[in-house]
Amino acid sequence: MSTNGDEATKVVPVRHVGRWIGGAVAVLFIVMLVHTLFSKVPNGQRSCHTTNGVRSCHPVVNWRFSWNIVWHYFTSSEVLHGLLVTLELTALAMIIGILLGVILAIMRLSHSRLLSATAWSYTWFFRGTPVLVQLVFWFNIAALYPSITLGIPFTHVAFLHLNDNSIFTPFFSAVVALGLNEAAYFSEITRSGLIAVDEGQSEAATSLGMSRGQSLRYVVLPQAMRVILPTTGNEVISMLKTTSLASTAGVIELLGAVTNIYSVNYEIVPLLIVASIWYLIVTTVLSIGQFYLERHFAKGALRVPPPTPLQRLRLDAIAITARFRSAQLYRQGTHR
């Protein structure tokens, strides 16, 4: 520290030696891992050429992870079609799950014991049995209930009569099974959000003359969203991958599509990589969407909203330049 009377006191930050060593080790491991991913290995064969009468032989090398096969199938029409089915399944199941889940959560918090118990039982059943079992159950629903009739209960009056085998296609069964299962989880997520909102908020809404529904819609639910959203993001991403279970019952979604391909050409690992990369891409897009949604619903809860990634980069850049400049000034000062 300078002892010059006219110079401002400098703050020297602590050097975190442990952090630097830890960081270096982590970087080393990452580099090694990436290297193995993109390394080439001999496949046991040799290739020989004769040039100018001289015969020379080299071992044949291939990508360890067969990237050439990965890229070949990455945008093939079967894979892209499977991806589309996966996205459709995820979206439809989440819509059913969210709508039914919110209704169940509100039922659960109702003053009516009967409604509350009904919602509780629903959650108990659908959370308590494996989702794969539920999928298989819905695929086979036609065996248990061959038809659906819309009419007056316990009479022979019928307005609409539907054959289950024609409605419960594998795709529709998967949507129903995944949606109903999600509703059980989502109702608990919504309930935790609703409980987290201070009771004073609904009291104030009530004292203005709002009905329970208005208070929920304009005051309580928007605030509960802040608690619900991060978990919902989790649920969507989890659902994206759970849809792969539908492949066991013949829905050709992303995993089903690559399974069909590798069952013919036996390139199992490269095709599983194709599916994984697509799952990662969709997850990334969803995470970005989640960030902006969370920012939107943080309105009023935070005095200053968190910076977007772009804003954060700019702030980092400004901070680094400032630090660099001050270090420069400091050096100039001490050398003078």
């Binding site: 908020q201 009291e203 104030a204 304009y218 009023g300």
Partner: peptide, 8 residues
């Protein structure tokens, strides 16, 4: 505790 609607 005022109970202003925090989201508005």
């Amino acid at each position: 505790r005022f109970n202003l609607f925090q989201n508005l």
